[in-house]
Simulated scan of single mutants.
Amino acid sequence: MAKVTLDRLRKVYPNGYVGVDDATFEIGDGELLVLVGPSGCGKSTLLRMIAGLETITSGELRIGERRVNDVAPKDRDIAMVFQSYALYPHMTVADNLGFGLKLRGTDKAEIARRVRESAAMLELESLLDRKPAALSGGQRQRVALGRALVRNPQVFLLDEPLSNLDAKLRATTRVEIARLHRQLGTTMVYVTHDQVEAMTLGQRIVVLDKGRIQQIDTPMALYNRPANLFVATFLGSPRMNLLQGDVVADGDGLRLRVADGLELALHPDAALVSAMRAFAGHRLTIGLRPEDLFLTAPGAGRLSARVETVEPVGNEAFLHLDCAGSELVVRLSPRGLPEVGQIVHLDHHDEHLHCFDPETGQRVG
């Protein structure tokens, strides 16, 4: 096991495109860190730089205390699990698990021992004599994980390993990866575009966009206090509701003039009031998670909206609303739902209000 340190890592391609720009952070010894972001954000490029599959334009990469910028991938003591299973179809599960060790000249008895251990850990003992064609997608992915596991590397690198699985298998394999990490305590770097995987697996998450790090924190810290509009709207499903308007100071109070005839009285916590007051007379974007809006009796709420769509999904429902031209989504109980076209009245939890500068996208307060 080892920590991984990235110091101002940069990747620039020959055509001038910047794939990764100024990536600086440390992955703790034994930590499971997730790199997440949309397609093309640089997360896989960053993982491949750690693996040695992409050259580093500038900056420094260390695994443990060793600088590895120019060290070949095979000498970095890492193991990588790819999106594709990449299993040898003519080999049994046992042979696939032990093939990497065989190439390194490991003793046969040691290969057999490690294969048995990893097979037991991944519940593959009954499948050791099968070939990949006789395995399900989930079983193949476990073999791919086991092939990396037998090497006892300092660092595991996982590049969207669940994207080829269906929803049920993704959920069960995600649990297996989390269990494996707890059991092994090995440093893991996990790349995904799926925010659910990121939130449920990562001890910390690095959110990337356009090659740059947007925020690094624990899953719930990112969800509860996003640093900017990109993080706020990327994490969370449905995405955060956004309302933009002019801040109007009214004595000690503040209002957000969203549209003609629609003004939202703001009662944020004291720490946020002074920051918001600096925007008096200027535009401000406020954000509210769908679960932080709730229905009220007529005349009791601060907002009213027309129901556009009702989405019951079993244990909860989503209301899609038109609020003076702005789309809002509310998460609520599936019981007693309003009808499409009905006018509903809403209020929100002030302590969960998020404020952003609409020009810079940065959090306010």
Rank of each mutant, 00 (worst) to 15 (best):
N15K: 05
Y17I: 05
A23C: 10
L32S: 05
P38N: 14
L46C: 11
E54L: 05
T55G: 14
N69L: 10
A86F: 05
N96P: 13
L103P: 01
T106A: 15
A112W: 02
D129H: 12
R142S: 06
L145M: 15
V155D: 11
L158A: 04
D159M: 04
D159V: 01
L162M: 06
L169I: 12
R170L: 02
T172R: 11
R174W: 13
E176A: 01
L180V: 04
D194R: 02
M199L: 15
T200G: 10
I205L: 05
V207E: 03
V207S: 08
K210D: 11
R212S: 14
Q215P: 06
Q215C: 10
A221F: 00
L229T: 15
R239M: 10
N241M: 08
G253M: 09
G253Y: 13
R255D: 06
A259T: 06
D260I: 04
G261F: 02
L264I: 14
S274I: 01
R283Y: 08
L288D: 07
A300T: 13
L303Y: 04
R306E: 14
P312M: 05
H320Y: 13
D322Y: 00
L328V: 11
G336P: 06
L346D: 02
L346T: 09
D350G: 08
H352R: 15
Q362N: 14
